[in-house]
Design a binder for these strands. Structure first.
Lengths: 207, 207, 207, 207
DNA sequence: TATGAATGAGTCTTCATTCAT
DNA sequence: CATGAATGAAGACTCATTCAT
């Protein structure tokens, strides 16, 4: 064939996705993927370097998006925008973040489930650990900027307190995915979430 | 003989604990446990039914404690005590819970680490999923009781909102363990945590 | 078309040569050859029957030359020349042989390296074993002729002694190639080699 | 079983030796070894870490002996003995070496065949390359000492010339093994070999 | 001619568990 | 109780070659 046959590759990815979702990465065997996708075992290796690459490829879109979003906030070029945004309440900051995650869930629910719960044994095993750390840094930046702009809100939070709230935000979406909450319901709950977070942070700043 | 036996059994458990902590459940082999603990491979099966039982036995104390605590709150016998407690603010409720967890960490930090992060492949893999669900039920009970006693706080929270706060509490301790936060530091952060939660809940109730 | 074809074929051969040199025959895969030479994997089989043929083709010139040289000496037609040559000392015989090999090294160093050290798994694996045996026969012939012509040098050498000297000559060039000795240096060493061999043979004949 | 069962381990080694001899290291599969030795495939790994270890274990005695012999000559403690020995002719030196190798062949013919011709793919693949280099160093030492003690024999040989003679000595025994020469015959040929070498070296020294 | 997919048998290695002693 | 051998099934991955287009 003159042209790259891709339907097979897609078959493999789809089958693998199903199997990974059902059994997790390490409990899914290449043989299984081959048989269930109707492709010869050896042939899989014409499309993918190894089992790990299959997982990564499935999960790539979410990972890319998450990393882009994180980078975007770190981008010094956007600092203008960033500081303007500081005028608004942190509620809006949180709200915007939440929306971003909701969009992700809408598009990549299954892939996020893979990343969150089924990556054991793959190179993505610790993705969210790394991701929360990077995101925490972003939030710290946001808060220190907020502190400079609004000195009346002067309060130095413990690093771990900041960290835990980042983790919580991610945990929030983790649980939405785990319990297969619908997007509509998720959106409703988010207002509770934001109310909660805003009130909490304001109270912390008072002290 | 009985003495010798428990000696060996403890050796195995201690070695296994170390290895599980280092490599996780599924990446630790019985051979490794045998060699590192100086016990014959086959002999391990005189003490433990299988690899899974070793893990369970190591983790048993924490699991028992966590389950007891959960059951205690569900126990109808304790309902008197329970309702008395309702008079106090939820801050105290949270605080008491937090203390309970801190005590656990103090006593069983390594075992909790195992349960949280190293159980992949064992029957305890989903322990915390199950545990949060049960705990959520407990919290729901608490809140509905609170609602009856203090109707002025009348507000029906979304089940998922309740759930997420349970998860967050547990996540809080999860992160303390993951980042190896000292108990002293943990105690300090907890006040932030309680302030936050209290303010949040009060705000939610207002609406 | 014919032009294009030989172009491709050469690409393959050159790439294969490099890879064989680097990793040996059996540790070089057809895939590797295909990728590194920019030719489609399947297409290679339009030019070569199989992996072995690629190796043989690379090594063909040396093999042909070596075989021709060997045959030439066996050729009855040349017996005249051969016997004339016998009048000279064996030193010159050795010297001429050595020059022949040096010429080979000059032209086909890499291919000889392949034949000597990288043929494991190919049909050429035992080429030099066979080659030394054939060459030994030639030398035996030479010596028995010498014996007839110069009876004063009458001495029947053990077949294995003759054999070992043939092997040694080849080993000599094997080591020159292995240690990447320059041709100039090689030529210098060869005089040592010839001195040595001549003295040795003369001494053996005396006994 | 309380005691280490070793007959199995020996079975494996013997079978493996046969197969390695017949097909070479890389063309012998673990399955083959398992089946032919009547041991379960997995069970082999209770005795040996991997295929390479099997090969090494078979070949260990020869390797050890060769290395010991080499080290012995390098041992500074023996320098006295060494210098005394220098008074004798190099013929004796060669003769002693040759005897040492003959003893090895007598005891470990098959293992030497493995090392020489069947190690491709194992970690012993380049053993003789390394061994000749080390031995060459030893010979250089011998010659430079000889040079000091007997200045009348003053001649600085080219390093490669020394090297090639070491290789030749080893090649000598390589060919004895390859052509399955009997020990008795080997011993006869050796006198030719020594005559040859002595005459050669003497001639080289004259120049 | 050219391509990359497909095949199919093969590679070594791992491991929880059971067995014989 | 103790031991290490034995089992048996599974694991990921490789690769020369042929096939369909």
């Amino acid at each position: 064939m003159q042209f790259k046959k891709s339907y097979n590759s897609d078959d493999i990815l789809k089958t693998a996705e199903k199997l990974f979702l059902k059994n997790g990465f390490s409990r899914t065997s290449m043989r299984d993927i081959a048989e269930k996708s109707g492709v010869g075992l050896g042939n899989i290796y014409n499309y993918f370097k190894n089992k790990d690459e299959i997982f990564c490829r499935i999960v790539e879109p979410v990972v890319k998006t998450l990393e882009n979003e994180t980078d975007k906030h770190h981008d010094p070029e956007n600092s203008d925008l960033f500081f303007t945004e500081l005028q608004t309440m942190s509620a809006q900051y949180i709200s915007r973040q939440a929306e971003a995650y909701l969009t992700l869930i809408k598009k990549h629910r299954r892939q996020m489930e893979l990343l969150f719960f089924r990556a054991e044994g793959s190179s993505m095993e610790k993705f969210f650990e790394r991701f929360t750390d990077r995101t925490t840094e972003k939030v710290k930046l946001f808060l220190s900027a907020l502190n400079q702009k609004l000195p009346q809100a002067a309060h130095t939070f413990d690093d771990f307190t900041i960290h835990i709230h980042t983790v919580w935000m991610i945990t929030f979406f983790r649980e939405i995915i785990m319990h297969k909450i619908s997007l509509e319901k998720a959106r409703n709950i988010i207002s509770d979430y934001i109310t909660f977070e805003s009130a909490g942070w304001l109270e912390l700043m008072k002290r």
